[in-house]
Amino acid sequence: MSSVRVSSLSPSLSGPLSEMALSEMALSEMTLARERLLPVHQTLAPLFGLNADDPTPLALTRGHTVACVGSAAMSCALAVLVAPTRAGSWAGVVGLPSCGVQAAADLGVALERTVFVADPTGGSRTSGQQGDAAAALSALVDGVDVLLLGQRVVSSLSTSLLRRLQTRVQSRGGVLVVVGEAKSLASSLSADVRLTATTQQWQGVGLGYGHLQRRQVLLQLDGRRRARTTEQQVWLPDHQGQLSPVEKAAENTGVVIPLRRVG
């Protein structure tokens, strides 16, 4: 179709476009294993079998679906967004109008690279809405690395549409994070990684005094192609609203004695 006569900058323009597209495809096939991974929060690294001292543990495989379940599922899902958005990836939060933005900001999610999208299905399963939702979600997958879906979106999408979305996420190299109840999520889609966050204990509040300060959460990770379930005790959130590991030795020294009203 065309050729370049004067191009002082680079020879990359030469050759027909189809050839360029072909070579690009060939390149994408042979990307390095490290490039197929997105970072996770340092505290989550041991769960994925990585060293906790690694400042940027790369553990989230691009193309995977991560299901966050349990009583602390929302905080857990936000904690998954932290490292990728900080590293320059964009995140899309779909159909979660009740997502606590301040909690996300405190956890460390880069809000400047996070967009909040209204539920594209409108909560209905009519075919017209489904078509729009599919188009919107696949358009979003093209641009963001991490897509966080609420339970309501997942349950209002048809199974075939969900599978297509997962395939799309795989081909674009994104990560799909779904948050909700374990049972209903398991019935609608198959997750590669499942993070179960169970609240152990809230600290800082007594009977009429103090205020919520931190919560101990048991995180359990299991999934396909994983020999055993790994687990870890974390503060989610800790005093500053962040995610930090529970140090076994320091557990007793960290007891908070809140002020109480006298008289």
Binding site: L78, C99, A103, A104, Q213, P237, H239, G241
Partner: peptide
């Protein structure tokens, strides 16, 4: 304002 941490789910 409420002290940290902030709630992760806010009901509008």
């Amino acid at each position: 304002s409420l002290p940290a941490p902030a709630p992760a789910v806010v009901h509008h």
